[in-house]
């Protein structure tokens, strides 16, 4: 029984470590940060879940085995979100992103606004707003936010009508 348990755990652990090695090699093989993220995700999902499964088989008591399973569940929830935020950071801060990927911007999203402001009139308004605020204190902010809310309301109405 002991031997069966050991073999089971050891096999899982070794496969997990192999996938970790694959992930770390991938981090050096790929040429672009967003591609490297793919390799890192192998480490974060497959590697850790296989290792923790093996270790929970080998664990000294049932409580620690359950805690290790909890670590797997935690990683399944958290690792994709961490990847999402990293990817967002990468897409947003990389100025030469066009040479690595194709961007399809959906109208009305944040990225759309970014694209428009890259060299352009809307930004100018925003800048002026900001400067007015420095000069006139707080009142301008309130007005600006009011107008923003109003325009948003109009948009909503237009969509529904």
């Amino acid at each position: 029984m002991q031997i069966v348990r050991f073999v089971f755990g050891a096999v899982f652990l070794i496969i997990g470590l192999l996938s970790c090695i694959v992930g770390v090699i991938g981090v050096f093989k790929f040429k672009y940060a967003a591609n490297r993220m793919h390799a890192a995700a192998i480490n974060d999902t497959l590697g850790i879940s296989l290792c923790m499964l093996g270790l929970s088989v080998l664990a000294p008591d049932i409580a620690s085995a359950l805690k290790m399973i909890l670590v797997i569940i935690f990683f399944w929830i958290s690792a994709p979100v961490a990847s999402h935020l990293l990817c967002r950071l990468e897409v947003e801060t990389n100025e030469e992103r066009e040479q690595y990927m194709e961007l399809h911007v959906i109208e009305g999203t944040e990225a759309d606004a970014d694209k428009n402001t890259a060299g352009a009139p809307e930004m100018e308004e925003k800048v002026e707003e900001a400067e007015n605020e420095t000069a006139d204190g707080q009142k301008m902010t309130a007005e600006a936010s009011d107008t923003q809310i109003a325009s948003m309301d109009n948009m909503v109405k237009g969509e529904t009508a």
Partner: peptide
């Protein structure tokens, strides 16, 4: 900073 990231918010509700 990016705000109101709904993916992050739903995750935070769980975690």
């Amino acid at each position: 900073e990016p705000k109101n990231d709904s993916i992050l918010q739903h995750t935070a509700k769980i975690l």
